[in-house]
Every structure is written in C-alpha cells, then in structure tokens.
Nucleic acid binder design. Structure first.
Lengths: 203, 203
DNA sequence: CGTTCAACTGAACCATGATTCACTTCTAGG
DNA sequence: CCTAGAAGTGAATCATGGTTCAGTTGAACG
C-alpha cells in the first residue's frame, strides 16, 4: 500500500504553485489581463492547463492571489520610501511620487492593476488592490489629523478619493505611453497635498 | 419596380433605433451592463435580436452611442445647475453636489456608467463618459485660473484627477447602497475645492 | 522490480452571448 | 390585387476561453 506524498514532493508542489502565481504576475505585466488566460499562464509556468486547477479551484481564485500579491508588493514599495517619523505631508508626497514613477516605469502592469477591464468576478479581487493603497493613505491622513498637522476630515473617504485621483490622472499617460514624469509628479503632489489641506504647493 | 422606402417608413426606422438605444439605457440603469445583452435589449425594445443589427453593426457600436447619450445627459444636468456668471468655486461645488446626488439616486446606473467592469471594447466607449465630465470640470478650472481665482495648475490633469476622486469615492457607497448623501457631498466639496487651491472649506 | 496512488497532461467539453442568415412579413407603387 | 424588394424574425452558428477528465507518468515503499 505504498505512496504517501513526502516532504520533498510537497515542496515540489509548493514551488509549482509559486511558479504559476509568478507567471500570472509576469503575464499581467507583459500583456495585461487580456493576455492572461489560463492556457497562457500554464504555458508560461511550464505546466499543463489542467495542472493549474490542481492548485487553484478557478481562475478567479488564482487571480485573487495574484492581485493580493501585487498589492502587497506595491504597498510595501511605497511604505519603504518613508520612515515613521516624517510628517504626513512628506509621506504623502513621497508616496505620490513613488506611485507615479512606478506606474510609468511599468505601464502595462500598472494599467492592468489599476484600470484595465477585467471579468466582473475578478474585478472584486482588484478592489483588494485599490483598497490596499487607500488603507495606506488613510493611515497617514489619520496620523496627520491626530497630530493636528492636517485639518479634521474623513480619512477613509479622502484616501479613496486620492487613490481615485491618482489612478484616473494616470490612465491617460499610461495608455499614451507618454513620459513627462517630473511634471506629473509635481502636479499630482500639489493636488493631493492641497486636497488634504496642506496649503503650500511643494512637499 | 415598386418599393422605395418612403418618409413614413424612415420615421418608423428612426423610432425603432431610438427605442433600442433607450432600452439599452434603461437596462443599464436597471440591471447594469452585465444584464445588457443584445437579446435583453432587443426584447425590451420590442424587436428581434437580428433587428438590432439592422441599426447597429455591433454591440460595441450600440453601446458607443449609449454611453455618448448618457454622458451628454449627465453633463447637461450638471451644467444646468449653474450659470455662467458664478465663480469657479461655486460651480465646482454645485457640480460635485449634483454628481453625488444623481449617482446616489440611481446607483445602478451610476455604477454602470462609472465603474462596472465591461468588455474591453466597450471600456473605450465609457472613456467618453469620463472624459465628458473631465472636460466640463476642466473648463471651470481654466476659467478660474484665467480670472486668478485659482492658482495656475494643469487644468486637464486636475480635472481628470477630480473625476477620478469623485468616482472612486462613490464606488463604496454605490455598492453598499448606503446613503449619508449630505456628509458625502460636503466632504467631497471640501476635497475638490481644496485640491484646486480654494482654502476655506465650504463653497 | 511491482504495486499503488498522487500528480500531470492536454484534448475534449461546455457555457455564454454576440452575430448571422434563410425565411417570413410588410410597404410602395403599378 | 400583384410584385419587387426592404424590413423583421429568431433559431442556428460561431468564437472564446474556462473547466473537466480519461489516460499517462512519476514517486514512495515493500
């Protein structure tokens, strides 16, 4: 009565699963969601399409993880640009800059994560992504309010509005592949800082 | 050699076409884009599915017109809330209020027009809708700058950011069917006015 | 080795919904 | 009335891409 999957095998499984998620992430970055069919992702991760279903019950589940992973990565990247001690204005300005520059550096990925149309079932997962950003911004706004650096305002609503503003402002440039990153960064920093009640234009 | 479509017939045709567009608009308002299949729209406008194709070469073309129509209607509604003479701040505040209240009054329609996932081909058309809003806001911003009521800023970028902020801030409330319109209006007015450099909170 | 089952494979299957088209039903003169 | 052709019909067709599954390969262990 032999065969009981051993540790070695379970490691192999985990690696395959990982490869699949990575392949999906890469595919998203390269060709957008439209190009990320199960077949494509499977090919890219060197497994058969059926194997994908051995790791994820459905495409939706796979992409739930993909978006969660991407969100984590992006938010970590923003968070890493500033330390705890800094003022809310400084942090917001740094995050806006990082957001814009990262998006412009990887336009296809950014577009896929932010704005590309996806299946309704997947859209819910992408919300994860936007919410992760919103939570990050909301935290800084809340701290700014607490320290009286910022006027009282609805931190969650404001954060959502900021994320929406950044996303929408980027859609044009992202699709047009146009650069002008410096001006974009500056204008959006001004916009965001003013929107939370910081009056002087620059960070 | 008889039969040449007469005036009467052409009117009938135009009416049918109109009925189809209206049905699509209504369907969007009632069940969102997901519910707006050609078959549904056809049934709703009292014609056979094939007939729809007698008026529009493809679903994409039909919805291009639908979104164009909806955009026109919405922008007209906003524009109607203020006269030429008013200050940029007053106009922006009025438009934000109208935008929010109209959206909350017709959440399904608003969601479909603003944020619901649609086929990629259709997404391009929905851009029309957002751009129509952005153009409206951009106009007011530009005038505000010219009259020195507002500081110099990139009117188009700012307008896009405002539209994105409003849309994103509404997605939560729209999906949750929650009200609180008054607070939402006030907070978003504050957000928008501040973002364009108007410092006092209220309109 | 042999056996047993897990893991893998990829072609076949299926659901969905846009689009087509052979056919029927009108409309406008003659 | 009759006929040419336009307009309308809706069931059948098609395309797409997610999902399944019968068959194959590989791993573990006596």
């Amino acid at each position: 009565m032999p065969y009981r999957p051993t540790e070695r095998t379970r490691a192999r499984l985990a690696a395959a699963r990982e490869r699949i998620v990575d392949a999906a992430l890469d595919q998203l970055a390269e060709g957008g969601y439209a190009s990320a069919s199960i077949a494509t992702v499977a090919r890219r991760s060197q497994v058969a399409t059926g194997t994908v279903y051995r790791h994820f019950p459905s495409k939706q589940d796979l992409f739930a993880e993909v978006f969660r992973r991407a969100a984590q990565r992006e938010v970590d990247a923003l968070r890493a640009t500033t330390g705890r001690g800094e003022s809310a204005a400084t942090r917001l300005a740094a995050w806006v800059e990082a957001f814009v520059r990262r998006a412009l550096a990887e336009p296809v990925r950014a577009y896929a994560l932010i704005a590309e149309p996806v299946d309704p079932a997947i859209e819910a997962e992408r919300l994860t992504f936007r919410r992760a950003y919103a939570d990050l911004f909301a935290g800084a706004v809340r701290e700014g309010i607490d320290s009286e650096e910022l006027p009282p305002l609805d931190a969650d609503l404001t954060a959502a509005a900021i994320v929406g503003a950044l996303a929408e402002a980027l859609v044009g440039p992202l699709q047009r592949r146009e650069a002008g990153a410096d001006a974009l960064v500056e204008h959006l920093q001004t916009f965001v800082l003013r929107s939370v009640g910081v009056s002087h234009a620059h960070a």
